[in-house]
Design a protein around this nucleic acid. Structure first.
Length: 644
RNA sequence: GCCGAUUUAGCUCAGCUGGUAGAGCACCUCAUUCGUAAUGAGGGGGUCGGGGGUUCGAAUCCCUCAAUCGGCACCA
């Protein structure tokens, strides 16, 4: 006999091989009816699975958060059946659950279009209505290969062939349709419910490999309940409203045009924001002991051959050839430039760590399909720095960078950070003991940071070819994650360029180079800020902080006085003196997301006061001009300059 | 780069199976000087993404290039 333990701690005996369903039935028919799966010792399992050992059992109904994955996975199977029913000859491949939904990749000569969705969804509802049981079978490899070959499912055959020979092949059937699948599934298709929706079609490479065939992917989502689906769709709309490309137009921040794909035309307001970020970062870096430099935009090909970039990234570089046939490249990175500055003049161990920073604009010929607003561009500015130090200093410097990055993100309102360590890739340079040291140093940083309550993780084999790296990912106001900061340890480049310092023993010694960026790309970080705040910037970041809205022309002169006084205090302010109604002006400047509106009419002009209206509120506050400007100027101080 | 979609006025979009371009907002002019999210009237504005082709005739059909969007791949 086996012992089954229930969530309340009660134990009961069953014959070995009793299924979860039998156990549920033994408790009550209604429990059996509403249970869609079980968790055995915490592992989600088919309810029809026999229980063969002592285990804790937990019945999962479809409202259980753990069931969501099953609903989506089951729905993927139903999607595949529906597609094969409607479009004979379509081959199935894989259909996994992903964040917020699932997809299924099909192979078909003619790709799907969103116009097909209505028919597919209808067919899916029919399949769900039939409420066929999911039945699991275990097949041999040969049996599976024979079946899928006969069915013309070449991709499935390939999948079966990649599964280790000693492993069972699980087949899940729903009525006549079946799929190779790891499971688990719910008891029947009817449990999926009706809160699902096909979202979009896309192309995707078979096995994620660009040398393999392009498949037709259908993205979809499913939830336990309709209101959850509705909430999700609403969230997507919200994300669209925050889209930085749309807000940039509405707020007059920047634009793109055809002649410069992937390169930004910064308008005055966007550039003000950009410069505010640079000023902020410059202060933080100076305080942290960095020196700031500037290196050439265009450098001889020979330099890039020495650095190794020419060999690896030639096709992604902007190249230019001059009249004398000399080949130059626009810099795709700042590192080689910084090494030149390090090498210029003899360096001593006493100079280390030497922290060289640059707001370096780099050009990279990114694949056309990669471009995305200002998030992914072909010309961008990095808050780049390289720390030349000894091996012994790596840990300490990486920790200092970490503290600086965390403090900076906090100033921008990002407190949910994930830190990941990427370790040595297969293709790499440098000896293993050097890698050991570098990884150990970064791992200690990771552990220390984890102790402080930050989420951490490891990406094995994801490091750069020259060294391991730490990657900082932040989560924005609507939960999306963005990778920004990075710390990379490099033993390679200083050697390639023959950089050295004089060690205490008078020997020439190659320094370690730590690459480090905190915003990452200024363009990208700006985009993240736009979306994070949905354009409602805090005062210190807002490109235009105040608009004065006059109610009558009698206040024009006073408006000019306010402007002069506010600008003296460093506030970014404009006046709207147009002959328009106050309603019109309030609406227009609210839509432009100006954080502070100062409305002035005859009354305010007479007693030198202002009526303040803040973005997002309809409340009006009246106070004296001096009082108002003092408060606003105090609020507009950058977080690093605030005294408290 | 690959798959798919899209490209019409500054913006958002309409324009059926080919018959010679339209709306709202914005802009300009005039009137209105008004108290916290759209005052009224009038007016101007488009090589229909570029190039080529089919046709008596192309925004509309075909080819091609480009950009953009959604994914995939890429991201030093």
């Amino acid at each position: 006999m086996i012992y089954v333990t229930f969530p309340d701690g009660a134990q009961r005996q069953f014959a070995p091989g009793t299924t979860g369903l039998d156990v549920a039935k033994s408790i009550s028919p209604s429990l059996a009816k509403r249970t869609v799966a079980m968790a055995l010792d915490g592992v989600l399992t088919d309810l029809a699975d026999p229980i063969t050992r002592d285990a804790k059992i937990d019945f999962v109904n479809r409202e259980d958060p753990r069931a969501l994955e099953l609903i989506r996975h089951d729905c993927a199977h139903v999607l595949a059946e529906a597609v094969q029913a409607l479009y004979p000859g379509t081959q199935v491949t894989i259909g996994p659950v992903i964040d917020n939904g699932f997809y299924y990749d099909f192979f078909r000569a003619e790709p799907f279009t969103p116009e097909d969705f209505a028919a597919i969804e209808k067919k899916m509802r029919e399949i769900i209505a039939k409420d066929q049981a999911f039945v699991r079978e275990v097949w041999t490899r040969d049996q599976a290969i024979a079946h899928f070959e006969k069915a013309g499912e070449a991709f499935k055959v390939e999948l079966v062939q990649t599964i280790p020979a000693d492993q069972d092949l699980k087949i899940y059937k729903q009525g006549d349709w079946l799929d190779l699948c790891r499971g688990p599934h719910m008891t029947s298709t009817g449990k999926i419910g009706s809160a699902f929706k096909l979202m979009k079609v896309a192309g995707a490479y078979w096995r994620g490999d660009s040398t393999k065939p392009m498949l037709s992917r259908i993205y979809a989502t499913a939830f336990a309940k309709q209101d959850e689906l509705d909430a999700y769709l609403k969230q997507l709309e919200e994300a669209e409203r925050r889209d930085h490309r749309r807000l940039a137009r509405e707020m007059d921040l920047f634009h793109f045009q055809e002649e410069g794909p992937g390169t930004v035309f910064w308008h005055a307001k966007g550039w003000t924001l950009f410069q505010t970020l640079i000023s902020y970062m410059r202060r933080r870096q100076q305080q942290a002991g960095y020196i700031e430099v500037n290196t050439p935009q265009v450098l001889d090909r020979a330099l890039w051959e020495t650095s190794g970039h020419w060999q690896t990234y030639r096709e992604n570089m902007f190249i230019t050839q001059t009249e004398d046939e000399r080949v130059f490249a626009l810099k795709p990175m700042n590192c080689p430039g910084h090494v030149q500055i390090f090498k210029n003049g003899l360096k001593s161990y006493r100079d280390l760590p030497l922290k060289i920073a640059e707001f370096g604009t780099v050009h990279r010929y990114e694949p056309s399909g990669a471009l995305h607003g200002i998030m992914r561009v072909r010309a961008f500015t990095q808050d780049d720095a390289h720390i030349f130090c000894t091996e012994e200093q790596i840990m300490d410097e990486a920790m200092k960078i970490n503290d600086l990055i965390m403090s900076i993100y906090e100033d921008f309102g990002f407190t949910d950070i994930v830190l990941k360590l990427s370790t040595r890739p297969e293709k790499r340079v440098g000896s293993d003991d050097v890698w050991d040291k570098a990884e150990a140093a970064l791992m200690r940083v990771l552990e220390k940071v984890a102790e402080g309550g930050v989420r951490t993780g490891v990406n094995p084999g994801e490091g750069a070819f020259y060294g391991p790296k730490l990657e900082y990912t932040l989560r924005d106001a609507i939960g999306r994650e963005w990778q920004c900061g990075t710390t990379q340890v490099d033993f390679n480049l200083p050697t390639r360029f023959g950089a050295f310092y004089i060690a205490p023993d008078s020997e020439k010694t190659v320094p370690v180079m730590i690459h480090r960026a905190m915003f990452g790309s200024l363009e990208r970080f700006t985009g993240i800020l736009i979306e994070h705040h949905a354009g409602h910037f805090p005062l210190w970041l807002s490109p235009q902080q105040i608009t004065i809205c006059t109610i009558t022309q009698e206040a024009d002169e006073y408006a000019m006085e306010i402007i002069a006084e506010a600008r003296k205090r460093g506030l970014r302010i404009e006046a709207d003196l147009r002959n328009e109604k106050i309603n019109y002006k309030v609406r227009e400047h609210s839509l432009a997301k100006i954080p502070v509106l100062l409305c002035i009419g005859r009354k305010e002009a007479a007693d030198k006061s202002v009526s303040i209206r803040r973005l997002g509120s309809q409340a009006q506050t009246s106070m004296s001009l001096d009082e108002a400007l003092t408060a606003l100027a105090a609020e507009a101080v950058a977080p690093d300059l605030k005294l408290n």
